[in-house]
Design a protein around this nucleic acid. Sequence first.
DNA 1: TATGAATGAGCATTCATTCAT
DNA 2: AATGAATGAATGCTCATTCAT
Lengths: 217, 217, 217, 217
Amino acid sequence: MNERWLEELLRINDEEIKLSEKQAKILEAAIGIFSQKGYAATSTSEIAKKAGVAEGTIFRHYKTKKDLLLAIVTPTLTKVVAPFLTKDFVKKVFENEYGSYEEFVYALMENRYEFVKKHLPIIKIFLQELAFHDEIKSQIQVIFTENVLEKFKRIVEHFQENGEIADVPSGTVIRMTMTTVIGFLLARFMIMTDADWDDHKEMNATIYLLMNGLAAK
Amino acid sequence: MNERWLEELLRINDEEIKLSEKQAKILEAAIGIFSQKGYAATSTSEIAKKAGVAEGTIFRHYKTKKDLLLAIVTPTLTKVVAPFLTKDFVKKVFENEYGSYEEFVYALMENRYEFVKKHLPIIKIFLQELAFHDEIKSQIQVIFTENVLEKFKRIVEHFQENGEIADVPSGTVIRMTMTTVIGFLLARFMIMTDADWDDHKEMNATIYLLMNGLAAK
Amino acid sequence: MNERWLEELLRINDEEIKLSEKQAKILEAAIGIFSQKGYAATSTSEIAKKAGVAEGTIFRHYKTKKDLLLAIVTPTLTKVVAPFLTKDFVKKVFENEYGSYEEFVYALMENRYEFVKKHLPIIKIFLQELAFHDEIKSQIQVIFTENVLEKFKRIVEHFQENGEIADVPSGTVIRMTMTTVIGFLLARFMIMTDADWDDHKEMNATIYLLMNGLAAK
Amino acid sequence: MNERWLEELLRINDEEIKLSEKQAKILEAAIGIFSQKGYAATSTSEIAKKAGVAEGTIFRHYKTKKDLLLAIVTPTLTKVVAPFLTKDFVKKVFENEYGSYEEFVYALMENRYEFVKKHLPIIKIFLQELAFHDEIKSQIQVIFTENVLEKFKRIVEHFQENGEIADVPSGTVIRMTMTTVIGFLLARFMIMTDADWDDHKEMNATIYLLMNGLAAK
DNA sequence: TATGAATGAGCATTCATTCAT
DNA sequence: AATGAATGAATGCTCATTCAT
């Protein structure tokens, strides 16, 4: 089985992670069941059975059940806001790699759409457990304020000076953009899971409306 | 203790619900702990202790732990979309009680803002457990398609003919409106719980952006 | 409903027992469920539901669950060996009401056959709980030695002197007779419950074999 | 502790059963308490305590309490009628290993007497629970009709042709023989548990009477 | 490294019994 | 006399975790 995707997803920064075969199976099994029934409602014996390992093996790799959860969720945390973490992300914007805020948002949305689509189960776990574990909550806070907020603000202000978008407080623009993007993804993947949409058409419409909303008058 | 609000919230349609004192205490306790730690991670003994009753008493009133959850969540289900359930809701719109879509959205948002603020713990439970209990999921589906969708559509189309909002498919307008409203409420109550916002200013900005987005050009 | 049979069965000696309607219903329900699932596996709430009374009502009439069992089983105890308890039972034998031991055994068997048939559920309870409650065990001991053994012995010896039955120790004859009678009844009512026998033909054959066995040579 | 007898008793057919030390202790404890207080009145915690293991350990070996019961009772089921299950049982009879029906019955009784004496507690459990668990009941039915009835019938008919026993329907002879044997054993081990009998003398008398009863005239 | 038997605290639920009405 | 809400101990069973092999 090719576990490259898992290794890649769980890698933080650039330290290579080597997952033994058993470890990979445990993680896969845990992701599957956690996302389906929730962390608290999942038993380690269930995970062990699905992973095809002994119960004890789980605890050799992860000291507690919660450690197993965090091993899944923590790396994902950074991956969710990944684009913002690349060094030259802002530079790209200023160097006109994105000719407009619209293009930027479109690229962002498309990128996150693919990411969510690929890692839906983990994203679900993440959203669920976020509410109950303060470790996760505060990590988000940190990542967001340290790595995302400032950059996002610079980008927004760039396009405001630019005259493309209206001169409202950047916080509001950011929130509008984010709720729009996240709202679209939630609607698409959590609620209308089986609706037959033309995803890209809806995405375009959504961004069009957002841009209209943000446009300078 | 005054439990009128609880009785009122849990009332479906117009059947009066009479909560005995113990029952009210059980519900209150359950709501508190469920919303804080999640349904699956909450033990009935914990609820009993917080409610100040014997554990057996819980099971006299609610046959299973899950029944207790549903007794909390099911009535809330309808209350969440309550405005749409009132008989003359659409009529009001057409009779110019709301002069514009903007006014309508504003009223809706304000109203739901107050509702969520008041019943935050139950809403949290509701959102969490939604993902794991198919009974809840399918009930939502039913309520939404039967009571909300059609009415919402008529309203949107009304204001499209009216020339106020753009001539995009009504489904897209509805989704945009809903993700905006829900997005705002989620951001406000779930994520930035302790930010010191000026709620109404943010609400106004949000709606302004939404309306710009939806405006006919 | 006519509860005369119950009142009659539960009457000890000659004290009249007046069962209130509720009491009769409780007893009836208890007999039904005890005999079907056993005393220990039956809950008082189950009895209450079947009897159509409140749980509390049971405990108004019978202080504990065990009291309820004993109220059913104790009177039955004497009724099981009832023929031996009538004053003139032995006299009847000697006065040639029964011309032979065979006739006597036949009458006894027929009589107990009808009794067991009529009161099968109680008999079942009786046999089951006998094993677990020392009160019942010792009561049997008492009744048997005080009321049955001596009389039975006199009867056997009568027909031994008479020359009808062999001159083995009367204890052995009694045991043989009893295991034969009881064995027949057990086989008929407990084991081959649904076999389609000709009961009286089998009874005759059984007694014939017994008498052959006991016959003086 | 030597658990060979338990392993042997619980072995079905010829598959070896290996009982771990804990398992043996659990079974021993369960047999003891079940037979004393009955299955339904015995709690798993009680068994665990007596067995000197943790309560969870019981459920690692036996999925449910009922499984534990069946693990005790089911193998015993076949052992009870064991003589009939040996391949050459009937052959032995025809080849004059038993010169007469009397000798045959005597051997059978003696053999079962020793068996019951040795395994009294299990036999008690067996008789008690028989009444409440349909699995046990139907298994008996199967074993009896498949393995015992036909053989027993052939033996009886052999000795009828032989002229030793009377020409009554074989079913009746079988029932008489069985109620006599079982009646004796019940009387001996269940009822007169503490009587000081000379067991073999009583057994001889019993068989003598039975044979007289069955004798061809 | 991996196993799986063993643990005992904890779980949801049921129980016989009490008591205010 | 009858009710049924309330109790809290007890039940069968599951849990995350440990540890000898």
